[in-house]
Design a protein around this nucleic acid. Sequence first.
DNA 1: CAGTGAGCGAGCTTCCGCTTGACTT
Length: 917
Amino acid sequence: MAHKLVIVESPAKARTIAGYLGNGYVVESSIGHIRDLPNNAADTPAKIKDKPWGRLAIDVDNDFTPYYVVPRDKKSHITKLKSLLKDADALYLATDEDREGEAIAWHLLEELKPKKDVPVHRMVFHEITKPAILAAVENPRHINQDLVEAQETRRLLDRLYGYEVSPVLWRKVMSGLSAGRVQSVATRLVVDREKERMAFRAASYWDLEGTFDAGSSHDQRMFPAKLHSIDGARVARGSDFGQDGQLKTAGVAHLDRRAAEALVDGLRDTSYVVRSVESKPYKRSPYAPFRTTTLQQEASRKLGMSASVTMSVAQRLYEAGHITYMRTDSTTLSDSAIGAARDQVRELYGAEYLPDKPRVYASKVKNAQEAHEAIRPAGSSFRTPAQTGLTGEQFRLYELIWMRTVASQMKDAVGNTVSVRIGGAASTGEDVLFSASGRTITFHGFLKAYVEGTDSDATAKDDAETRLPNLTQGDGVSAASLAAAGHETKPPARFTEATLIKELEDREIGRPSTYASIIGTILNRGYVYKKGTALVPAWIAFSVIRLLQEHFERLVDYEFTANMEDVLDDIAGGRKDKVTELREFYFGSDKLAGLLPLVTGLGDIDAKELATFPIGDPADGIALRVGKYGPYLEGPGDGTDPDGTPATKRANVPDDLPPDELNSAKARELLANPAGEEIDLGTHPDSGLQVVAKNGRFGPYVTEVLPEDAKKSAKPRTGSLFKSMSLDTVTLDDAIKLLSLPRVVGEDAEGVEITAQNGRYGPYLKKGTDSRSLTTEDQLLSITLDEALAIYAQPKLRGRAAAAAPLKELGPDPVSGQPIVVRSGRFGDYVTDGEYNATLRKDDTIEELTLERAAELLAERRAKGPAKKAAKKTTKKAAAKKAPAKKATAKKATAKKATAKKAAAKKTTTKAAAKKA
DNA sequence: CAGTGAGCGAGCTTCCGCTTGACTT
């Protein structure tokens, strides 16, 4: 029998809805997007690969036509949907009602291609309840093509931004880096905050804190109060100072320690009178039910969960049917959810905690798309945490969601805040005023169920109470104790995962499904790292953000996404056109500089300048440089180098030193004691010099330590460790051997000296300008003259081809007829027929490589022409220009790995050291 | 950031937003 096929986005949702719709309906899911622009070269079909726009998969010269593919892992799923559609007499596209959901519906239609006689309906709903689903199926609409266009504009703009700007970073900063509409602004927020911290100057200020006694007629006698004003001038507090440490408020009294202590002395015998008592009603309304960001924030504050842990725990709760969908920007509850929450309020807290009317929460999020409900316990009656049988993290997160949802339907908390002013006269003549404040809560309302956490210790929780004695104007009080208290203003706090996510949401950047992964991206790229819960920017992020701000200012503007959203809204409303907008963004217009001209006109970026950040007074000449091997300091050294230029000193910067702690003094300290971990191996028996082992640019090596006075005129002997050695185990004997290199092996018949030495490409023999590689490093120490002469007697071998045997032989190439073999090369394994070589792709393995596949690779390669000669002729200039850059990036890539390893090693050692301590 | 001599096959990195498993440790 024929059925109606309903396609939603999530499998868990499909299961629930299937239950509501019953027989006659088959409910399946798309599992998110089913088509996308190809992710990388491996996923890019051959037919567009060679197009100039192949890397983008967007034909920018032809109305920005996108080239979509079904990702490999979705192909079998599409086949399944197609076969379900074959037996269906109607298709309901029930993806989320937002921009992305509309696009998924359209892609499904494009890919499934239902037959003409199968009606296609677009079905939408905002809550997964039986009445809502039944109503939705009865009231379908059509796909909104303008909304689809808006999504496509968003998708293409993000691709153009990311895939055009990232390569600029590869060339100018470091290979493998990335830029994007969301991640670059997220990084900028962290970098800008650190800059604020670096520019921050603390201010110190003093006041008086005392405990006052209301007298024995009160049941509560003691209460704390702070100095408020002197002779009518308010005493300065933290908020009166600017980031530069200067007082920014006029007319306030700024006390220093001496003045504060003098005032304490002057008040020794003072008696006080209550000058005023001001009482105001206190009222606090419950917080809205959770959406993704608020859940992530509270799970972080109360449960210490990272954003990604929160999401994966929530995912499991959702799949098991405990909560509603966790990726939402809506705070709306369905009617049945409101009913369930109110039932629980009545049961657990009593009717007096229940407001007469249900509370309704309007969305606070500006670009909210409201495709789902708020995050709440699932069902039309809530289970208490104990009733769920959950344990561990799932229990705690469910409990949080449950409490928040129930509390959202409770009454306001009410009470009083009281502000008391107490006056007195000092023996030194000043009239002083102290202030005390209290808060009493007479009805806790929702606070009984749920109190929101705070991000800083400075903010009091909503349910915090401070009681004061029941004072009235004219009452006399005395000071039980009084002391001067010093304070310092603090720099703005670093972002945490949760506060950065909140900041991004406030600026309309990112979506519920991506907040957690944004953090992951900027961590993975090495732009930021975590120190406790704080996000600290790495120096490379400063370089990247500087480049983007100087050359792509508009793209890292905090308003960029919000402006884009406005344009997308206009496209969705049919008021603006996709191609016109993309053209302006990419090619530019009279008003706007386009992305393409910005990217192509970048020859003048000075990479060195970009990576240099002066530390302290620029006159000191100390700067932090972001090098290929990580950040380092450069400063003036002593005197001049042998070649007459002023000497410079360099020093590594510890990986875990936050930028705002690298001030002038710290920089000098590091430069004075360059932090290289040196291992003392002892004294060289011949030279009498100390021999140390350290890690250098080219890996571990040993060197002699020259006395200070010899440093300018001589360079110490050095030698790289053999691969068989390590810094941990290297001995003085090893070092002596290494330092003896290069070794003179002997002379040939003509009297030309042959030496054995270690070099960039490994161990080798050198005779004049004629060099020959050696196979092992040990030969450097052991090779005899006869053996060396035998090597020189052989003709020089070029390349590796002669040395290594093929890894696999596959038979003759169908085109050239030459045998195809697999070889291992500098860039990895490759197949060759003797004339053409083609590197194996990511997914190819030697074991599984067939002759057909090898022939295919060679055919692809051959299609590009005889690269060697032709390329050299036609693009000689370009090649010459490119070559050093390529070399540099290759070096960078390996260096990156090396530093990463180094950093990891360092971290473990510091950890171990800390443990020991 | 220690200091070195050749000649050889390139190809890939990257975006943001929707969704889950399938992997390994």
